[in-house]
């Protein structure tokens, strides 16, 4: 395989190369703009400075603790959101009565921007990590739940009939038919939810004092000395964390959901 890579692998290599080229171009623009004098270097430091600062803060135990705090809160939020949204979605998708009974409530809650709930959460839950996790869970539940509801409706009626004809009981139907059938849609939901949850976590950390994390680091760097180089370096880390999570989702999809044509 080394001399003659598979088409899939070659395609992946091409994607990686193009991505790297795009990133380098972006960094180059950042460098040029930063050094051109168009903007003050304190406000928009050149890429090289940001990267140097990135190397520094990655070595800083305090910053690493912040990253761990955010990532941990993220994992917990997504786990909780999945634990709530998947069963809820299966129930709402399978039982029309429940769906109709909850429709008004859902349609009322859904359009509220989760960020607007930050003050409410802080009042109700306090300034610890509880608030940001609650907010992230709340925001992450929606995309997972709606994708699940949609996926349940999308299960092929022929498969339902097949299961009925072979006298497959409810539990086995859920395990062997329903869950595998909805899995690709749920994963897509988790992907959307992961991005939204990260936004909520970092926003809450930014706005609420005392909630440890990348967001708090950014607030302190930005307000204290106006250190935009540190702010941008920390922002890059937040982006990298998101990138890593997306790669994880892609790996899960390749490993377990390769039968599906849901992207």
């Amino acid at each position: 395989m080394g001399a003659n890579p598979s088409p899939a692998r070659r395609r992946r290599t091409t994607v990686a190369v193009r991505g790297a080229v795009g990133l380098l171009a972006f960094l180059a623009v950042g460098e040029v703009v930063g050094r051109s004098g168009l903007v003050a270097p304190e406000l928009l430091p050149p890429s090289s400075v940001v990267l140097a600062r990135l190397a520094e803060i990655v070595g800083d135990p305090a910053f690493r603790a912040d990253v761990v705090a955010t990532v941990l809160a993220w994992v917990i939020s997504l786990g909780l959101a999945l634990a709530i949204a998947l069963p809820a979605g299966l129930l709402l998708g399978s039982v029309p009565g429940v769906r109709i009974a909850t429709r008004a409530l859902v349609e009322f809650l859904r359009p509220i921007p989760s960020v607007a709930l930050i003050p409410l959460a802080v009042v109700l839950i306090g300034q610890g990590p509880g608030s940001k996790i609650a907010l992230a869970v709340y925001a992450a539940v929606w995309p997972i739940m709606f994708n699940t509801i949609y996926a349940v409706a999308d299960v092929d009626p022929v498969l339902r009939e097949t299961a009925a004809a072979f006298r497959v009981g409810r539990g086995r139907f859920v395990a062997r038919v329903l869950l595998p059938a909805v899995a690709p849609f749920v994963l897509t939901g988790v992907r959307l939810a992961a991005a939204i949850a990260l936004i909520l976590l970092v926003s809450t950390e930014l706005l609420v004092g005392g909630a440890r994390g990348i967001g708090e680091f950014i607030t302190q760097a930005g307000s204290g000395g106006g250190r935009m180089d540190l702010v941008l370096a920390a922002t890059v880390v937040a982006g990298l964390v998101g990138l890593g999570a997306n790669a994880l989702c892609t790996a899960v999809q390749r490993r377990w959901l390769s039968w599906s044509d849901v992207p």
Binding site: V158, E161, T162, A165, F166, P180, A181, A183, L257, S260
Partner: peptide, 20 residues
Amino acid sequence: VPDGLAVVFQDYGRSLMPWS
């Protein structure tokens, strides 16, 4: 569904589970 009955559906492709 009566005992001892088995069905081969018209949409055989759709009646198989693609994940199994």
